[in-house]
Simulated scan of single mutants.
Amino acid sequence: MTLTPIRTAVVGYGLSGSVFHAPFIAANPAYSLEVIATSDAGRQAKAQERHPGARIVNGPEDVLALAGELDLVVLGTPPATHHPLAKAALEAGLDVVVDKPFAVTSTQGQELIGLAARLGRVLTVYQNRRWDGDALTVKKLLDAGTLGEVMRCEASMERWAPEISKAWKAGATADDGGGLLFDLGTHLLDLAVQMFGPAEVIHAEILARRPQEKADDDVFLVLKHASGVISHVAMNVNSQLHASRFRVLGSKGGFVKFGIDPQEPFIVSGGRPTDGAYGVDDPHHYGTLEIDGVRSTVPTERGAYQEFYRILAEKIADGGAASALPLPVDPAGPVEVLKLIEQARTLA
């Protein structure tokens, strides 16, 4: 394995680039954060302050012009740009991380997978919620067989956001990758498929309740998995009283968990992935396990978004696309999520 740092560029420095990507790249010595691209003057100043060793440029075209000095590009840009920018980066000889949603159609996603394979480049998708503490806790219970045969899983991500805070989201239709189904739905559907296997959508409610919403902001889907599990997934930004994050019912017991994962707010508040308190859940938000009428508290597994970049670094250092090591996220999974979204839209 090579010990040369992976020369990395982050394109986009909104929430995605500034919270979910740059801090984790900067904290991992396997990487060198060389370039950050954003055209917003305020974001440029923040990027320079937080990452003084990085070169700040205006846009993706500037990053592509530096392709010969880079190894990896991370796309934290609006969804409609993912396909063309990932395609251009792969063709420029770079490995690529695409934030979710992978693309705005499953066809686009499959095209990128084929292109990466032909060019021998690493391509992966940032489905970071696989490393949420609550998702890791559910996975631990499932792996241990604690709940028995699972019959139903309910998963939700709800917020109260009566106004649309980002300009691109305010103007984005579903065709542009706008709306909650592409935003939070890609997380919930990915987790459902990861936990319970392939599925089909058998019921869909896709609504736009905010007057200014051009796509969707209140979504409820029912999935039927080949394993027999039924998943209910809900995402809503019109909720002042939030549902549980997970409720899983099995033949031996049930588990319920409330509260949001602490990793994003921790980084937003100025914390770092290397801090001792990073990823640690508030005990008040621990989940509840009930078996035969007896309830017990289940401590939340520590959140671990940094695992994505650790696994990716090992893959690249071991030979990249030629390595037998796994990707942090095989992009075939996010393509299946896009197909579920397409199914849902035909039913709604």
Rank of each mutant, 00 (worst) to 15 (best):
E34V: 08
A144F: 03
G276A: 15
D132R: 01
S296Q: 10
D217K: 03
R118N: 14
P84Y: 03
E290V: 14
P283T: 15
V337T: 13
A80K: 03
D99F: 04
S239R: 07
G93N: 13
E49R: 09
M195D: 09
F266G: 08
L180V: 07
E264I: 05
A204E: 08
V268P: 04
V104E: 12
L221Y: 01
G303C: 10
L221Q: 01
L241H: 09
K339M: 13
L325T: 15
E149V: 06
Y31W: 10
S231A: 08
L66P: 00
F258V: 11
Y305I: 02
I267N: 08
D143T: 06
E111Q: 13
E69P: 00
G250F: 05
V150M: 02
L189Q: 03
S165F: 15
K166H: 11
L221V: 04
H284T: 13
H203R: 11
L327P: 03
Q127I: 12
G250V: 04
L338V: 09
H242P: 01
E61Q: 07
L223D: 03
H232D: 11
A45F: 04
S227H: 08
T124Q: 00
G293P: 06
V122C: 04
L94N: 06
A41G: 06
E163S: 14
A88D: 00
G12Y: 00
F255Q: 07
E213D: 10
L112H: 02
A317W: 03
A321S: 09
A65T: 04
I260W: 05
A116W: 00
Q44G: 07
G287M: 13
T274R: 03
G53T: 09
G271R: 02
P162V: 02
L70R: 00
I311K: 10
A37C: 03
S227E: 11
D134T: 05
F266Q: 02
F246C: 10
T4I: 11
I25D: 05
G14S: 15
I267A: 15
Y305T: 05
A226M: 12
G42Q: 13
Y31A: 14
P273H: 12
F24L: 12
T137P: 03
V104Y: 09
T81D: 02
A192Q: 01
A67R: 00
D71V: 01
I267W: 09
P78Q: 00
D282Q: 08
V125N: 06
K166I: 11
Q240P: 06
P328D: 08
F102M: 08
E61T: 13
T137R: 04
R129N: 09
M1Q: 10
T297W: 01
A86M: 01
G271I: 04
T274M: 07
A26T: 07
Y278A: 09
E336M: 11
A37K: 01
P23V: 13
I230H: 06
E314F: 10
L115Y: 01
T2G: 12
H21Q: 09
R152T: 07
A161M: 13
